[in-house]
Nucleic acid binder design. Structure first.
Lengths: 190, 190
DNA sequence: GTCTATACGCTGATAGAC
DNA sequence: GTCTATCAGCGTATAGAC
């Protein structure tokens, strides 16, 4: 695979990821991508034969990003509070271009998506829930977090806050998202 | 306007509402509606000339439902805790058919929607935020709710929990949504 | 009110030349 | 790897008959 090809394939993937989180899977086309990259649709199909292929690669890349994040953060001396902050910061970064996270973009159109994408997205989000649950449990045991209820319920609430918060931020501005992030942190300090 | 016409118009609106919250605005068509009702597309266009018209009527109906809810609930002896429970129950009902709320369905595709729909949806959701904020403030002053931070930040968190929770429920089941609802209630009792 | 017919661009996707 | 050409189907929308 040549350098050029690799670049194009990567650019398509990144642009697809951008479109998925800014418009939704059914609201962008291969033509949108080829136009933006100065190509023809057929060239996009060469790299990703079907839209389902592209969609799954986008989700796979999100899985890799999450895995990288976990490795990078769990391989440090950071305490649970700092790890949580880093995790929340992950979502705040989406905000810059009014993007939402995959929970929002995939979830909203969930039943219109190919089964492979539904399953793939479930795996991705389940990983996030799992890691966050462990983090909360460990942090609670150490006395770093204070909260009532089970850690997995808290993990779900935090992800609901982030995914829903990004949607609300789109309509009411970044400041509203900040309020939610602060509220989440405060809720773990009691 | 005859009885029949009225019925068809109402059926289209209800079906559009169903499709919007189950698939998303860009993932259903006038043909989907006409097929389901045993009509032709042109008949749908007769009642709602453009899809934008239909979309806005769906949002208008949501506004009316919210207004009715507020009137019905504020016109009773219910205390703030019960009113909040009723409000959360509003969202739990969506769950039955794996529907999401307008924050999720409109928010995810927000930038692909006509300006009129964006503005209309903003108004609707702002009303919900406003009512909820007042409820929280009043309830906190009465000692019915206990929470740190500003009421409007709490209102946003609750709506983020509901909208995000419905998305997560779609992937992980109703039980996960219940955990979030319980968590929200618990967070107001400290 | 609902129908048929029609317009026309966009959709995902493929075949084959270069 | 990218192109041109082509496909069948679907998208929103309109005109005009019944």
């Amino acid at each position: 695979m040549s350098e050029e090809a690799n670049n194009t394939k990567i650019k398509i993937l990144e642009l697809g990821d951008d479109f998925l989180r800014s418009r939704g899977f059914n609201s962008f086309s291969f033509k949108d991508i080829s136009d933006e990259l100065g190509l023809k649709k057929a060239a996009v199909h060469y790299h990703y034969p079907t839209k389902e292929d592209l969609g799954n690669e986008i989700i796979n890349k999100a899985k890799e990003r999450l895995k990288s994040f976990i490795i990078s953060v769990d391989g440090t001396e950071k305490n649970e509070w700092q790890k949580l902050s880093d995790f929340l910061e992950f979502y705040a970064k989406y905000l810059e271009e009014e993007h939402i996270c995959l929970i929002g973009s995939v979830g909203a159109e969930f039943h219109t998506l190919p089964d492979t994408m539904q399953d793939n997205a479930k795996q991705f989000i389940a990983s996030a829930v799992g890691w966050l649950t462990e983090l909360l449990e460990l942090g609670k045991n150490k006395g770093i977090f204070q909260f009532n209820g089970e850690p997995d319920a808290r993990a779900l609430m935090i992800l609901a806050n982030m995914s829903g918060g990004l949607l609300l931020a789109r309509m009411f501005g970044e400041d509203q998202f900040s309020k939610i992030v602060n509220g989440v942190k405060q809720s773990l300090m009691n």
